[in-house]
């Protein structure tokens, strides 16, 4: 059998790289309606919670004036935002497995580590940007909702800008944690259960048993008591230590997820 010459153009020089994987993941992320709805829910929910919390913030008693930290109150919506952002991060990975699209994805980008890092880079960058934007907007909206007579925090006051920006960054980190957990389990239900367990259930249970000794290391506790504070809380991790601990968690979970994806059959 004689094979006629193949008419199609030969592949150009070079090879596929991380940038191709990242562009692919960006198109995939923005072409799902759920991305937009989830991020809108995060933005609207965090602003609403911030405004309502501030509107209900009373003038502190003289005894508590020193530790009065309205910046912490205005960022209370992070607890909701982390859930939405984390679950969407889980779906960025597990949605590929439940739908079967992972086969197409791996056909284009066979290296699972490259693929996972591209997903993390794209989703992490998006949630970081949205997180910072919503944290800033929430701060100013909530500040405006404070009742007369309640001391108003200024963005230039000591620690305030740090609290706002670290809270925004927290959403990006939780997004990455969701991606890592999704890569570990590859199943939506178990990944969401793990995420909710780590962010809500375990710190509450452990906090009830042993106080803050262990509970202070859980993400939600770090977010509320270490990151979103203009006035650091005693017994809790300092803001920068909290951030470093979170980054460590993300690196470990993403690294383990990448390792497992590379080892397991798709």
């Amino acid at each position: 059998m004689t094979a006629p010459t193949v008419p199609h153009a030969p592949a150009p020089a070079g090879r596929h790289r991380f940038a191709h994987a990242a562009r692919m993941e960006w198109i995939k992320l923005r072409s799902l309606r759920s991305t937009l709805w989830a991020l809108l829910l995060t933005v609207a929910g965090m602003i609403a919670i911030g405004v309502v919390t501030m509107a209900n913030t009373k003038v502190p008693s003289a005894a508590k004036a020193a530790e009065f930290d309205p910046t912490n109150n205005v960022l209370a919506g992070v607890a909701l935002g982390q859930l939405v952002v984390g679950v969407l991060g889980v779906l960025v990975v597990t949605g590929e497995y439940s739908s079967g699209s992972i086969r197409s994805t791996l056909a284009a980008i066979p290296d699972r580590r490259t693929l996972l890092m591209a997903k993390a880079a794209v989703y992490g960058a998006l949630t970081l940007l949205v997180g910072e934007a919503v944290a800033l907007v929430t701060f100013f909206a909530g500040r405006a909702a404070l009742a007369d007579g309640v001391p108003r925090p200024g963005i230039g006051d000591p620690g305030v800008l740090r609290a706002v920006l670290l809270s925004g960054a927290y959403l990006g980190l939780i997004g990455l944690l969701g991606i890592g957990i999704g890569a570990l389990t590859r199943h939506t239900a178990s990944a969401i259960a793990a995420l909710v367990g780590v962010t809500f259930v375990l710190p509450a249970v452990i906090g009830g048993i042993s106080g803050t000794t262990v509970a202070k290391f859980f993400p939600t506790m770090i977010a509320g008591n270490s990151l979103a504070v203009a006035k650091p809380v005693s017994d809790m991790l300092s803001p920068w230590t909290g951030l470093a601990v979170l980054c460590l968690y993300v690196a470990v979970v993403l690294g383990a997820g990448a390792r497992l994806l590379a080892r397991r059959d798709a």
């Binding site: 150009p12 596929h16 191709h20 799902l32 739908s99």
Partner: peptide, 24 residues
């Protein structure tokens, strides 16, 4: 390999556009 190697929430055009980006 099997039918439905795509996400049900994405359009055919978006699915193929993403693959095109990934494949250069």
């Amino acid at each position: 390999l099997e039918a439905r190697a795509f996400h049900p929430g994405r359009s055919a055009r978006a699915h193929l556009s993403a693959l095109a980006a990934g494949g250069g």
